[in-house]
């Protein structure tokens, strides 16, 4: 199990156990956080699962961003260097202590 620290839009911080092998989006959705809309179900056809990755262990690299993900994120007024589509980040054991913030709604 990998603990995920999630900051929601009201600023509150939640900790929950994530399921490895599933995407970060699925983990946040399945933990019941509705403000992550993820309308396309994780097939990278929208950008409604936008998050900021605030912290990952120093020795871990997230999978690189594809051109499609990059362009979809570009459509957000709230893009930051730490922006990712959470459907494109698989949760792996090495991501112990990952901290994530749900980006504002566009």
């Amino acid at each position: 199990m990998t603990t995920i620290t999630l900051k929601t839009r009201d600023g509150s911080v939640h900790e929950f156990e994530g399921r490895e092998g599933r995407s970060l989006m699925e983990n946040i959705r399945d933990a019941g956080f509705e403000e992550l809309v993820a309308m396309c179900g994780g097939c990278m056809s929208c950008a409604t699962c936008h998050v900021y990755i605030d912290n990952v262990p120093a020795d871990v690299k997230l999978p690189p961003m594809s051109v499609d993900e990059d362009e979809l994120l570009d459509g957000s007024d709230y893009r930051q260097p730490s922006s990712r589509l959470s459907c494109q980040v698989p949760l792996v054991a090495a991501l112990r202590g990952i901290a994530v913030t749900i980006a504002p709604e566009d």
Binding site: R22, E26, R29, D30, A31, G32, E34, C40, G41, C43
Partner: peptide, 22 residues
């Protein structure tokens, strides 16, 4: 529902990953 004619039919996504809410 959209996944039915896509990844579910293709066998790339199991149903337990398709619930809209937990």
């Amino acid at each position: 529902r959209p996944a039915l004619s896509k990844d579910y039919l293709a066998g790339k996504k199991t149903f337990d990953r398709m619930y809209l809410r937990p």
